[in-house]
Nucleic acid binder design. Structure first.
Lengths: 151, 151
DNA sequence: TTAAATCTTGAATAATATTCAAATACGACC
DNA sequence: GGTCGTATTTGAATATTATTCAAGATTTAA
């Protein structure tokens, strides 16, 4: 047993997938070469990538938290800079720059609250943030445009 | 010109993609047959599907808004019910039930602010919500675990 | 109207997924 | 530890699919 599954899910989270050209060709009733050409064009500016969508409870990322962030005044002139730093962390699903009550909104996925605590301590705690408010999701109803079936 | 691109993006939003087995095999240094077997196992309970991730600006969904919702007191006993109703709308990417300052958090995608206004008026305006606060994303840095390259 | 750029397509080729059967590893039970 | 049933790994054969390319069609810009 080499535990290939865990290594696979890691890669599939952010890539290592590809469109099914022949199936698209069948669905749209166009030749595969045409589909191929058009997908390559889309990939230049419209398609960011291809990925697997998971039942995140099964891959130790079932705990989802919205994080509202207030930057320090000196960071505030370039919120995208702080945002890009955060974007590198694998626990972080989304990073948006907003305005109003907060400067950034994150969506973070961890295994459970304990792991989220470690994330706050080790990642957010070391950034120059003036205030952080965590709003854990008690229940996910829809995610990535896909309705979560409850069990 | 058959406008194949628009039809392609529609299909790729929720499927018509597949893992790249040989590339996974190379990355993990395992035989393709092993990767194939393990992916089939994952698909039974862990992998929900495969999809393309877009630069949503290019497919008329570039305007992303976080929506914080306060339910009416009489709805509050079953927030998941209201959440499920909302989940049906195609503009809504995520629906989470939370607690604290708000009852629900949505993530909504429209073409622009005008279309978002229509959404607020026609969808949210017709639900029994005691308060709604919209927080538009000024800039998306990371989405669906994928870093958006800026231009 | 014309020329350049973009798009479509069939057919050949290259690459990849899939299947399958044998070998191995693992888990549960005594 | 020993045994049996189940799950996993794997190489090799086969089936399917992606990719390339060049020619023709269509669109665009002036």
């Amino acid at each position: 047993m080499k535990d290939i599954r865990a290594r696979l899910t890691n890669l599939l989270k952010g890539g290592y997938c590809t469109p099914r050209i022949s199936e698209l060709a069948r669905a749209l009733n166009e030749p595969p070469a045409t589909i191929h050409y058009n997908i390559r064009q889309l990939e230049k500016d419209t398609i960011v990538g291809y990925k697997a969508v998971f039942d995140y409870k099964n891959i130790d990322q079932g705990f989802c938290t919205y994080v509202m962030i207030h930057l320090m005044p000196e960071e505030y002139t370039d919120p995208a800079k702080a945002a890009k730093e955060l974007a590198g962390y694998p626990q972080i699903e989304c990073v948006d720059v907003v305005t109003g009550d907060w400067d950034l909104i994150l969506r973070v996925r961890t295994k459970d609250m304990d792991e989220y605590y470690q994330f706050v301590k080790n990642v957010l705690g070391k950034k120059r943030l003036s205030r952080v408010q965590s709003v854990p999701s008690m229940r996910q109803i829809k995610d990535e445009f896909m309705i979560i079936k409850d069990k």
